[in-house]
Design a protein around this nucleic acid. Sequence first.
DNA 1: CTTGACCTTGACGTAACGGCAACCTCTATA
DNA 2: TATAGAGGTTGCCGTTACGTCAAGGTCAAG
Lengths: 253, 253
Amino acid sequence: MTYSVQALSQLTGVSPRTLRYYDQIGLLPAQRNPTNGYREYPETAVDQLQMIRYFQTFGFQLTAIQDLLAQPKAAQTAALADQRQRLAAERDHLTTLLNTLDRTLAARNGGPQMTNAEKFSAFKQAQLDQNDRQFGPEVRQRYGAESFAASQQKFANLSEADYQQMQATEQALFQALRTVTRSGDLASEAAQQVFTRHRQWLCFTWNNYTAEAHRGLAQMYAADSRFADYYNDHVGLPDAAQTLVAVITRYAK
Amino acid sequence: MTYSVQALSQLTGVSPRTLRYYDQIGLLPAQRNPTNGYREYPETAVDQLQMIRYFQTFGFQLTAIQDLLAQPKAAQTAALADQRQRLAAERDHLTTLLNTLDRTLAARNGGPQMTNAEKFSAFKQAQLDQNDRQFGPEVRQRYGAESFAASQQKFANLSEADYQQMQATEQALFQALRTVTRSGDLASEAAQQVFTRHRQWLCFTWNNYTAEAHRGLAQMYAADSRFADYYNDHVGLPDAAQTLVAVITRYAK
DNA sequence: CTTGACCTTGACGTAACGGCAACCTCTATA
DNA sequence: TATAGAGGTTGCCGTTACGTCAAGGTCAAG
């Protein structure tokens, strides 16, 4: 007994178009009826289809499945274990995405009455979220890929309490920076405060702080106007960012 | 000041090809230098690109992003909340996938010395994994989509202990079925045992058992030779499946 | 003989670009 | 001033795993 395309389709739930496609790419070749050229599938095709769809549920590509089916079971098991890693990584990625999304939504749902805090939080959120694409390549090149990944990871794992503390630290930074920007005294105690708070703030997401990296970050601050806008806005003074860069450059040694 | 394609590319890490594509589809249109036709981006393009990539990290399609950018913030927030649902569903799907993969791997790594148990477990696993594609449409049609989804869900959430119990129940079923198949006595106590064990086994994954559904399943057993092979193999008698169908048909009322 | 169901191949469309080719423009240098 | 090299342009093909026609051949039934 052989199955026609439609018969096999109805038996397995796989569309005729898909069966023709699998035939075409050699994944599930069909025999041909010599008189009319119709495709004919032996009963074994049902099980082969099962295997194909089975591997497909785990996210294998069809070319990979084609190879897998020809391999011994040990190799198949190894490939499954391999795929497990990828799926787990994907899930972890989704989890961190959900975390940042939740924070973003929380900030947005703070509502329009707390526009300042909202802007603040959402912007910082956006900065950090886009940190990778924005400065990822540069930071990776300068300080190594692992440290950057670790930083992102550390941020993703911040608890709500940590996050609140991080915000409080930044507020203290703004306060001190306001004083220094007004006075212009880089040797003052307030200037030391600025440096200390900024380092403290960084260490919420950096896990191996170095003065060199801190100076490098200041360079990046100086080079990108959006950082300047951010600090000038939140401190409320037009030279705040410039002052911050000067302070970091002076104390990070 | 305007940016050339490459300047914007280096500033944002987005490839020139991608920028041209975004221009082409109208997502991030560029102005043109009238003398040479070169693309020119105003500084605001940087922030627009940031927003685009920001939404992209959350899995929005470019067409959706194009719509979103034109909408007020409340609508954007709603869309983000909506996307959260989808991402969460995707993660949950990955989690159940990982669970089944782990079980499959555990069975496969049981090694070749326990070939029988391995075959047993892996096959049942495969049956259940492919349950959806194989009988999903039919079962959904007969018993409703929700009950089928719930069944799949229930299986995915089985603990390791439940799973062991489920296996033990099936072994007991095989034992009783062996007796009944040999004697052929559908009125015997062993036959009652077969029915009870099979119902019990089903209830590991069904959460609203009905006799009608049970009889329907028996019909499906009778119609598909792979079920017959499965039971005949594991009971070790050529008429085991047939006997099982007869028992179910008799007692499920 | 016709009708309708089934089969065939072939071609186009999908999302978001990557990569290449052919050709044009600008700038710096020998 | 000729030229090399960097950077710009458009356009086309390829990617995945099929869905969706379209044009035409085959088969069983009335």
